[in-house]
Nucleic acid binder design. Structure first.
Lengths: 235, 235
DNA sequence: TAGTGGTCTAGACCACGCC
DNA sequence: GCGTGGTCTAGACCACTAG
């Protein structure tokens, strides 16, 4: 399929990183070592490493080497400030609904493709708390038949994305968001333990992945009074 | 300062694009032409073009050439859906406060550096409407002495960013956001013509720029009922 | 000083778009 | 067919890091 030599280097290294054979913070083989491993020149190896850098898998350090990076912090995605970033806070996640096969929920604001709609989907929802205080509820849907045996395996370190990467070698490649400020519904007010009718931040997300035609749909409802949602974008 | 040859190519082309000498949609000189223009090899020219691609200035088309791109749509920044994207809608912007020298406003949620705080700042605010209906009010602050003679010149096509690029060759390189869902204040409710106490989306933004230590601070208040805020991110 | 990544040359061949 | 960008080679020298 893909005969470009730099892709071979790139995909080989990516797979090793996804599998955990090169852990975060460790160094990849040097460029010269990769040259002999793959029988190519440095230009080709460097092109592969450039791509991995662009994808956020590695950082390169002049005079030292290429170091494996924690990608989850570099995606520019919306996340509760202090949730995945902050250390030393008491964070917790509880399932409101464990993953199970269900029907597509009409609540998703992004259009689901016909192809997806024909399939069953998997749904799960989680409540996110800081210091035991609920700050966000998250509803997720995705096409069932794309992730073989998903319901049966556990989330790696409580992270859906980490699970996708390590078990299925699927990465998040992008996302679309729609943001609304609404009055909270009574159901969600009860779950988040906030007064009825409070303003709440509603975020609809469509995640794009490295797997063809595989998307993740999420609806997030956040109380932003104490923990505003942060996001960042850099060139 | 910068002696790398690919930077020469990159910066030369970037400046021409910023000045409008290469307009959006036109083709840059071919790689071979650039080679002879700068007396370097294709590897070097291509490295410069790679950088421009990464920065969003150009797209490259196999067999055709490198085409100048409209960068403002590629930043993954938050913008009112249908504001800068949609065509055929009746969009308008009115100044609530024209640019003038003022004091730093304590309303900004991001910390302003000591260096900036010592300087005066320029402030302006604008009301954004769709079909004459106000949907967003925007307050902006930035350090005065960074943009010589700013108050006196007009916005290019009503765009602050376009003005920064063409007049000062400054580009937006990134941004940080904080999002909150709040009850609207009475002042803002009046400006946006919405009922008092309505939920409103409050976005604090710190824009990073290509000019050292120059940032733009914005506070946005958006009614999201009819026109939700959209954003997207792609690898 | 040895090893690493960063820049650069002077070629070559290929794949794509267009006439 | 010709010009374009995409991939690749086989070198070279430089800049940075570390023992």
């Amino acid at each position: 399929m893909e005969e470009k030599r730099y892709r071979l280097v790139q995909n080989f290294l990516k797979l090793q990183i996804q599998k955990g054979n090169f852990v975060v913070g460790s160094y990849l083989p040097s460029e010269n070592e990769l040259c002999t491993m793959f029988g190519v020149t440095r230009t080709t190896v460097r092109k592969g490493l450039d791509e991995l850098t662009r994808e956020g898998f590695i950082d390169r350090q002049h005079g030292k080497g290429s170091i494996v990076r924690d990608r989850r912090k570099s995606l520019g995605l919306l996340n509760v400030k202090g949730f995945s970033e902050a250390v030393g806070k008491d964070l917790s996640t509880v399932f409101v609904q464990h993953p199970k096969i269900s029907l597509w929920n009409p609540d998703t604001h992004f259009a689901i493709s016909e192809q997806e709609f024909k399939e069953k989907c998997i749904h799960f929802s989680r409540l996110r708390c800081v210091y035991e205080v609920p700050v966000m509820i998250e509803y997720n849907w995705f096409a069932d038949n794309r992730l073989e045996g998903f319901s049966d395996i556990d989330f790696i370190e409580g992270s859906f994305f980490k699970t996708l990467s390590q078990h299925y070698h699927i990465e998040i490649t992008g996302s679309e968001h729609e943001l609304r400020s609404e009055r909270v519904s009574n159901d969600i007010a009860a779950l988040l333990k906030i007064p009825q009718g409070s303003p709440i931040l509603h975020i609809s997300v469509k995640f794009h992945t490295s797997k063809n035609n595989f998307f993740l749909y999420s609806e997030l409802y956040c109380t932003t009074e104490n923990y505003p949602i942060g996001s960042s974008y850099h060139l």
